[in-house]
């Protein structure tokens, strides 16, 4: 598969997934009905593109525009590591799991500079909140993702999917997927963990953003959630493996399941204060992730 077709595939996956995510989220949050929700992404996007962009006094302009661009690029880089259709198709990168982990942890940098850019108080506090959250869940997140490499004996995502041909890792490592989903939602500052964009901060990092910048930011966050769902299904739900349907169809079905799950959680779960979340990350999630590592290592011996 050529580089160009991989790029087209990643772009199509991220755009389609982002559309489904926004529609599901809209269905949960408004009473407008299904038809209104289905056109909502297009309507919202055209509104944002036509809206005149506001600015602030002496913003760090480069940082402010680099934030959304970097977030979008990271979502794409993370998605490149994941095989979509089958063992030979798609980019199967040597240390794909580490590439994905590195891309997801740099999300913190994108959010932090986006909060720093406008030279304004609430976005800056949003950036600090993101730093506290990601630094607390970054280690459990990396641990549960890397633990899937133990039974597969490889860091390549394609090999990890192949190792699940008899039994999915969601069964072998029961702690893995729940911890992954919680930490993934926190890394994408989504759902119950959208504190960096919290309503109590008048929008947090997006408080001063409008127009094209806000449209890019919203799309990049949705694409980031799609990438996280893609990786979740690849390492825990057997990826493209499945009967009857072709591989790419299984990938899409499983990705959508995780994506809709995240969208539902975003509108139904209670928020947690940042202080409580930091405590939760270090005192609850990290030991559970270590248990996951030790049990999987023991089983793989």
């Amino acid at each position: 598969m050529t580089t160009l077709s991989i790029l087209v595939q990643v772009a199509a996956l991220l755009t389609g997934g982002a559309y489904v995510l926004v529609v599901t989220d809209r269905l949960m949050s408004s009473t407008g009905g299904v038809r209104s929700a289905l056109v909502y992404p297009v309507r919202r996007l055209s509104f944002l593109l036509l809206q005149p962009a506001t600015t602030t006094e002496r913003p760090d302009f480069e940082a402010w525009i680099l934030g959304p661009a970097l977030l979008m690029a990271l979502a794409a880089v993370g998605a490149v590591a994941i095989p979509v259709a089958g063992p030979s198709a798609g980019g199967d990168i040597h240390a794909g799991l580490v590439l994905f982990g590195a891309a997801m942890l740099i999300v913190l940098v994108a959010v932090f500079i986006f909060g720093w850019g406008p030279n304004s108080v609430f976005p800056m506090i949003g950036g600090y909140r993101m730093a506290a959250m990601v630094l607390s869940v970054g280690i459990p997140f990396s641990l549960v993702v890397l633990t899937t490499a133990i039974p597969a004996e490889s860091l390549s995502v394609g090999m990890i999917v192949e190792a699940q041909s008899s039994l999915w890792f969601v069964v072998v490592q029961p702690l893995g997927l729940p911890i992954y989903l919680v930490t993934a939602a926190a890394i994408a500052f989504w759902g119950p963990f959208d504190l960096p964009e919290g309503a109590d901060l008048a929008g947090g990092v997006v408080a001063e953003a409008s127009g094209l910048r806000l449209a890019m930011w919203r799309f990049a966050r949705a694409a980031l959630l799609v990438t996280l769902s893609l990786m979740g299904q690849a390492v825990f739900l057997g990826g493209y493996l499945g009967p009857i349907l072709p591989g790419w169809a299984w990938t899409i079905v499983k990705t959508l399941v995780l994506l809709v799950l995240l969208a539902l959680a975003g509108r139904t779960m209670a928020r947690m204060r940042v202080q409580t979340f930091v405590w939760f990350g270090w005192v609850v999630l990290l030991p559970l992730a270590l248990v996951d590592v030790f049990v999987s290592g023991w089983l793989a011996l």
Binding site: H94, A95, V98, L99, G101, A102, L105, I106, L108, V109, F112, A131, V134, L135, G138, S142, L155
Partner: peptide
């Protein structure tokens, strides 16, 4: 590859 990616992974958190 592994060391390069680990370096990038580590530095994103440390530089923030």
């Amino acid at each position: 590859q592994f060391l390069g990616l680990i370096l990038i992974l580590m530095m994103s958190g440390e530089m923030t």
